[in-house]
Each structure stands twice: as C-alpha cells, then as structure tokens.
Amino acid sequence: MATKNIAGISVDVNDEGYMTNPSQWTEAIAKELAKEEDIELTDEHLKVAKYLREEHEKGTVLTIRKVGKSGLVDIKGLYKLFPGGPLKKSSKIAGIPKPTSCV
C-alpha cells in the first residue's frame, strides 16, 4: 500500500494507482486522475464517476451494461468518455477499486 500526493492531498493507492479509500476522493482528485489517463474531465465524466461511487457504496458489482442502463450515458457514450477502458478508467477516476466483472 502506498500513498500518493494528488491535487495536494495525500491519498492511499494500490500499485496500479487505484484509490483504496474512496472517502478520500474529491473532484479535484478526479481531475488529476483523469489527466493521468489523458482525459479532460467534464461534467459528463463526473456524473458517471458519482454514479459509480454511489453504486459501489451499495455493494453493486459494476458492469458497463449497468452504467449503460443508468440513464446517464449509453455504452457507446461511455466508450467515448473513457476511451480504451470504459469501466476501468471510470472506476479509477471515481476513486473506487478496479472492477472485477468481465462484462
């Protein structure tokens, strides 16, 4: 377990850069994490990130299908927001653990 200084805050991360304590997350951190993935964070990204955080808190196993049915964004839109990693990159930016689902 390591800590990393993101947006001036010391946060716990694992060796892949996923935050291990979701409660340390802030929008400023999300912006920095997005930059690491070459993503310019917009309100659209934040909406998805907040949705993922809420679902994660409820203990939901997240899938791109679930996000696609959230009414926030369809699956095509999700790929556009997080190119090359719709669920992994969005989870990372949302400060929640790496997704464990295959769909």
Binding site: P83, G84, L87
Partner: peptide, 11 residues
C-alpha cells in the same frame, strides 16, 4: 462474446 467484449473493454 465474453472474450470479444472483454477485449474492447480493455482497449
């Protein structure tokens, strides 16, 4: 299908 979907999800 799972392998194909898993691939695109990983870029």
């Amino acid at each position: 299908l799972v392998m194909a979907n898993g691939a695109v999800m990983e870029g």
